[in-house]
Nucleic acid binder design. Structure first.
Length: 418
RNA sequence: GUGAGCGUAGCUCAGGUGGUUAGAGCACCGGUCUGUGGAACCGGGGGUCAUGGGUUCAAGUCCCAUCGCUCACCCCA
């Protein structure tokens, strides 16, 4: 039997109800803040991510689904949302709009990783971007909106971490420092971190390997904060102060590292304790200059993405149920053969204002009631010889057992009056 | 990409040391029940036992490989 490809899955039932609920909530929360939805293609030219996300990032180096089309173009299934949104921003000249331009998106992303809990090869994100202003208040607002979304869904146990990754020059200085400071401990580091020492020493900071953490302790590694330019430090302090003023609960994390190269200054992540190893519900940061990497003018921006699949795991872990599955208001039961077409005609007349389902063959009343119950219907309507001669329908309330006969023409308005 | 555990019906699972025609519960369909309730009882449909190869008189069961799932590493949403 043919099955869904590895790391992808069919969404249906409660799973899809959760996803729709999350997306509808995001729509409400983000539009209230002035964001408009944008939908960009799943397929992008490879350079969008190579230039935007960064050629040395793991996402680009190891995790992109790439293909060459018949015209020889190198295309990829997008591994994240921001680079594509910024490509569209430039392409449509959105820089002439009043700043900041706030956009949100939802949709599937693709990364070729080994699947595990909370990690799929096709996964879903909801993301938010605010482009055009470098003010710390925009960063704080973005972070607050991310929490607004999670809280509107009823989540309580998530934790926000805020930090800074500095400007590119700050990071260069800090990487040079790390390389030098950790060189004497090279042999004590994990194999992975020895490789990182060459390529991206910053990554050693958030290694889970106890050997690495011990080395960081022993080498008395200074935080990135100490290497920030005065401007970057001021920006960070202003973001922190604004968050405090907003009453946002968070924890400062001096070692927060993000995997996408375009991030500068503000960085943040939201974690949830019940997600297993993939604990990040969402994350983001500032990405000033991403537009320049993509070949446009340099513009500031800040944004985030949440993993819809992980939010679903968190909602389940906190015992928050998915919205109820849709159930018919009325289930029509024909009691004899001529009533079948009448039941269908009646259903069609009531739709789409009312959710109406029916049996397609004559049923005995008891069976019709069982069928209606099985579908979660509120009312069952019987159509038989008696009702036909009188032009009526017998409607029974399944909860109370109460039954009444009413003219068919009045059924619609009767349902509406409930 | 690395490691460990696991693959039997739509779902949850039985099937000691190999031995007739592979089972149960739930779910689904029908009947008992031709104008009124969720029960009960009876019956029915449904399986390449993940796939391929091997050992054997005989494989769901033992061996190998592959694929998939799960969890972790890594990475990140």
């Amino acid at each position: 039997m043919i099955k869904a490809v590895r790391g992808t899955r069919d969404l249906l039932g409660a799973e899809l109800s959760y996803k729709r609920w999350i997306e509808r909530t995001a729509e409400r929360v983000l539009e209230a803040a002035g964001a408009r939805e944008i939908e960009t293609p799943i397929l992008e030219e490879a350079p969008v991510f190579e230039k935007g996300v960064g050629p040395t990032s793991d996402v680009v180096q190891k995790e992109m689904y790439a293909l060459t089309d018949k015209g020889g173009r190198r295309l990829v299934l997008r591994p994240e949302g921001t680079a594509g949104v910024m490509r569209a921003f430039l392409e449509h000249g959105m820089k002439v709009r009043p700043m900041p331009v706030k956009l949100y998106y939802r949709g599937p992303m693709f990364r070729a990783e080994r699947p595990q809990k909370g990690r799929y090869r096709q996964f879903y994100q909801v993301g938010y971007e605010a482009v055009g202003l470098a003010e710390p208040a925009i960063d704080a607002e973005a972070i607050a909106l991310l929490l607004d979304l999670l809280e509107a869904l009823g989540l309580r146990r998530h934790r926000l971490k805020v930090g800074t990754v500095g400007d590119p020059e700050d990071r260069r200085r800090y990487n040079a420092y790390l390389k030098e400071a950790l060189a004497p401990y090279r042999e004590a580091l994990s194999e992975d971190s020895r490789a990182r020492l060459e390529r991206n020493p910053l990554r050693i900071l958030d290694s889970k390997d106890p050997r690495d953490q011990a080395v960081l302790e022993e080498a008395r590694i200074r935080p990135l904060l100490a290497f920030l330019s005065p401007e970057a430090r001021d920006h960070y302090r202003a973001v922190i102060a604004t968050l405090r003023a907003l009453g946002v609960e968070f924890e400062e994390d001096a070692r927060l590292v993000r995997g996408l190269d375009y991030y500068v200054r503000t960085a943040f992540e939201v974690h949830h304790p019940d997600l297993g190893a993939q604990a990040a519900l969402g994350g983001g940061g500032r990405y000033d200059g991403l537009t320049a990497l993509l070949g446009g003018p340099s513009l500031p921006g800040v944004g985030w993405a949440v993993g819809t699949d992980r939010v679903i795991l968190a909602l389940k872990a906190e015992g928050l149920p998915a919205p109820a599955e849709p159930a018919p208001a009325l289930y029509l039961v024909p009691l004899d053969p001529p009533a079948v077409a009448e039941a269908l005609a009646l259903a069609e007349a009531l739709r789409p204002r009312h959710r109406v389902e029916l049996a397609y063959q004559p049923r005995r009343p008891g069976k019709g009631i069982r069928e209606a119950e099985r579908r979660g219907a509120r009312f069952v309507g019987f159509l038989g010889e008696g009702e036909r001669s009188r032009g009526t329908i017998s409607v029974k309330d399944l909860a109370s057992g109460e039954q009444k006969e009413l003219p068919r023409a009045k059924l619609g308005s009767w349902l509406e009056a409930l």
